[in-house]
């Protein structure tokens, strides 16, 4: 798949490495060229320095024929704007938006964006881990429902 990732922070870089190692064609965009150092030497995708919601940059990244798009910069509004361009202007099939502010995630879910509110997910994982509760966590990505399986604690010896 041709996948565009906007934001080369820790999450973006790891996602790019992961997908690239699985054989996908990755183009990663970040406004700072030095962020691409995080990708390491094994990354064999393309990196473009520029603003992730700039139509010119997105065209260079091949948005017209992209199969999937992830916006994972540290700015919620930048992620929302870039995702709307991908989804509503270029009709990219799979667009996922990372949002820090849970309030905004809810609002943009209503607008049809598939959002992952990492703040909410991490808070819930911590809560469950602290309370030693079940290892299943429900979350939703916009319109699609899903869940993450994780282990909150080691099984106690019987």
């Amino acid at each position: 798949m041709h996948i565009i990732i906007v934001g080369c922070g820790r999450v973006g870089a790891q996602l790019a490495q992961l997908l690239s190692s699985e054989g996908h064609n990755i183009v990663i965009i970040d406004k700072k060229a030095e962020a691409f150092k995080r990708l390491g030497s094994n990354f064999n995708g393309i990196s473009i320095a520029g603003v992730g919601f700039d139509p010119e940059i997105l065209k260079r990244a091949g948005i017209e024929h992209a199969d999937a798009f992830a916006a994972v910069t540290s700015g919620d509004n930048s992620n929302i704007m870039a995702s709307q361009i991908a989804k509503k202007i270029y009709n990219v099939k799979r667009v996922i938006t990372r949002i820090y502010d849970p309030l905004r995630a809810d609002i943009y879910k209503k607008f049809g964006l598939n959002t992952i509110s990492t703040t909410t997910i991490v808070a819930q994982i911590f809560r469950s881990a602290l309370l030693k509760e079940s290892s299943k966590l429900e979350y939703s990505i916009g319109l699609d429902a899903g869940f993450i399986e994780y282990k909150a604690r080691e099984e106690e010896a019987a």
Binding site: F53, D54, I80, R104, K110, F111
Partner: peptide, 30 residues
């Protein structure tokens, strides 16, 4: 910030139903 102006206008129009919304665009490319 253009990204902020876009989101503010969309919130105003779509969430609050404001009849007229106008955004300043700082970078003409946007």
């Amino acid at each position: 910030d253009d990204e902020d102006n876009l989101i503010i206008c969309q919130l105003a129009r779509d969430t609050f139903g404001v009849p007229r919304v106008i955004a300043r665009v700082n970078n003409p490319r946007n």
